[in-house]
Computed example of a mutant assay.
Amino acid sequence: MTTAAPSGGGPLRGVRVIELGQYISGPYAAKLLADLGAEVIKVESPEGDPMRRWEGHGAMSPQFAAYNRSKSGVVLDLKTTAGLEALLALAETADVLIDNFRPGVSSRLGFGPEALRARNPRLISCAITGFGPSGPYASRPAYDTVISAVGGMYSQIVPADTLRPLGPAFSDLLSGMSAAQAVLAAMHARESSGVGEHIEVSMVGALMDFLTEGASTYLEAGHVAGPDSRPRRAQAYACSGSDGLAFVIHMSVPEKFWTGLLAVLERPDLADDPRFSSRESRVANYDALDAELKTITATKPREHWLRLLDQHDIPHGPLNSVADLFDDPQIAHMGLVGSVVAPDGTEVRVPLPSTRFERSGGPALTHAPVLGADNAQLVGATLAAAKEQSE
């Protein structure tokens, strides 16, 4: 089911955000604010955000569109006097400025925190970097694979015998979320102080914050978590039916889920097996129980098991692919898919924001902008005046 995007403006209606972002972390942070109703002006170089041409696409890859919807688009050459002046003039009208350049780049180009504060004391500036503003790694190029390795994420999801980067861009997305959260906190603080502040968000720090259980457990007890640590403790399993369709079971701590599962499997004898007779023994013998479950569930189709698991109130669910996700009846019921009109006039299905606000609603979503789409409206006069002064 396709649902119209919720309207009403959103809780951040009237907030102006300038984004100087490339690839994922900065654009995603600004996209999250746009989903809450903020006006986001994406400032790009004349060449544009490299994500536009991702995987051989022209000027509008689906990856770029995903992270840059509901934004205006401006092109400025920040290495020129006119381009810098246009940016600083925009900053005078803004509440927030987000960038994800390497440390020192914004100051070198003339729009570091001090320069911005001089033009707009209320402005909140947020810099997203790989390893923070200083230190032995600070100047390194910061891409997700590197940060996910250094920040401990891959040690939690990549088995030792695989050694291959896996999954989505964890550090990009988590640092974008951290940046959006920090911006909202700074906006709240500004209500009483009357002035903005500068925020530093590091991708590696966002990962460590996300991995708080593993990090804290090591610091307190010396336990080094690995890929199966959490599933083992949580008693979480993945199985397949006879039709090859996968599903998951999460028994957690309550004993009722284990006894219910035995009824589903029609294997009451497993309760007397010393390997599985208590939660502690099931944790210790996780691999053996995993093998038993896989053998049993392979005898009947997935739907058979999902029906029985539901009847016995055992935490479970189908292991959906992204394609399966949009056919899932719960996702359809929640209205999490909408549509926007692309620059070429075609209608494109998009995932909708997951949050719902009773009073303020949400913004009407729009497609990502073509390169420089809003130059004339937003910076045309400033650029023309700056060029005249320089001639």
Rank of each mutant, 00 (worst) to 15 (best):
R359Q: 15
L306H: 04
P268Y: 05
R267V: 08
L319S: 10
E292S: 11
E347I: 11
I296Y: 01
T295E: 14
R349F: 02
V253R: 14
D269F: 00
L378A: 07
F326I: 11
Q377V: 13
H250S: 13
H304E: 14
P315A: 06
A381Y: 06
A368Q: 06
S360L: 05
I331Y: 09
A332S: 15
A342T: 06
G335I: 05
H312M: 10
E292H: 13
L262V: 04
E303Q: 05
D327R: 09
H250C: 14
T382N: 01
I331D: 07
T366H: 10
D374P: 09
L245R: 10
V248F: 13
G335A: 05
G362L: 04
L378Q: 03
A291V: 09
A332G: 14
V253K: 14
D287A: 14
L289T: 03
E292F: 13
V264P: 01
A284S: 12
H316Y: 02
S240F: 04
S277Y: 00
L308W: 11
V248D: 09
I296F: 05
V337Y: 11
T295W: 06
L378N: 00
K256G: 05
F326Q: 02
A298T: 02
D272P: 00
F326N: 10
L352Q: 06
A373D: 05
S277D: 12
I331P: 09
S277G: 09
G362N: 00
H312R: 12
E280H: 08
L336Y: 11
